[in-house]
Write a protein that binds this DNA or RNA. Sequence first.
DNA 1: TCAATATATTTAACATAGCAAATATTGTGC
DNA 2: GCACAATATTTGCTATGTTAAATATATTGA
Lengths: 150, 150
Amino acid sequence: MTDDLNATGALALPSTKRSVPIALIRAREKVMGPIREMLSDCGITEQQWRILRVLEEFGPQDASSLAERACLLLPSQTRIVQTLLEKGLVTRQADEKDRRKQTVAITGAGQAIIHDKLDQAQAIATRIEEVIGKKRLAELLDILEDFQKL
Amino acid sequence: MTDDLNATGALALPSTKRSVPIALIRAREKVMGPIREMLSDCGITEQQWRILRVLEEFGPQDASSLAERACLLLPSQTRIVQTLLEKGLVTRQADEKDRRKQTVAITGAGQAIIHDKLDQAQAIATRIEEVIGKKRLAELLDILEDFQKL
DNA sequence: TCAATATATTTAACATAGCAAATATTGTGC
DNA sequence: GCACAATATTTGCTATGTTAAATATATTGA
């Protein structure tokens, strides 16, 4: 009884205004605005920042773990690490035991960038918490986690 | 008092595991999986599908409105419409009154694709509702809307 | 041991994201 | 009516997303 009907009475998709995929994009777009602004003046992209963050948080790791944690597909990860190598922000070397694996690590220069932006990044996180509310933000993260069950 | 501290006692960013931008990406990735699968066999991308959906829902409209509703940047919209033109799924013509504006409309072939996929798309939407729960899904959309205040 | 498989990562190719600059058309003030 | 600012869209360029294929190393079983 809750099926959406269009003007002709036929079964219709939910309006794009309440579409989950579109809502996720829109929200993300807003969140990323200030973050991109923060990163633009140090020549780092959003994805490069994520890789540095993950390396700083979890330490040196193989490519697959890094891609999973930074939420990147392996091909993207490969390219991004290559540019980070050129910038001198990470290192990469084959694992001794299993030479198929590549171990990626953050350099001092990479850590410096994170530390330089720490206050700004913290301020952005705080701002989000203020606007959305601490409780609702926690709810949001919980609900989003449930999407992994799909 | 709620500041996150790392091992050295310095101010630290929230773990990437509870990062809002990353959580949004992960959720979106899961949602899009079945949708991409549905579209792959008719040679249509996710963004092309969004444009067709919006044109079907709101009718012929200028490029800016279309981009806004389909949640695409104008340059992306321009290029995607170009490929849709080549596929014969949309038309585009200059507005009579204001020749700067381009009016885009869906064709019969474009509508046919939407109607062909209607049942499948509906099933995906239902599946999401089952897993997340109707109430929580509504909460999610409400919270995501609040991000526009940022 | 060696061929067949499986695993880890990279490359290739095409589509899109994001930003800045270029184009085209319209509106405005003098 | 014209130079000039404003608006709507497109183009150019670099980076990433996405899928499939290629490459390299490990593992397994006859």
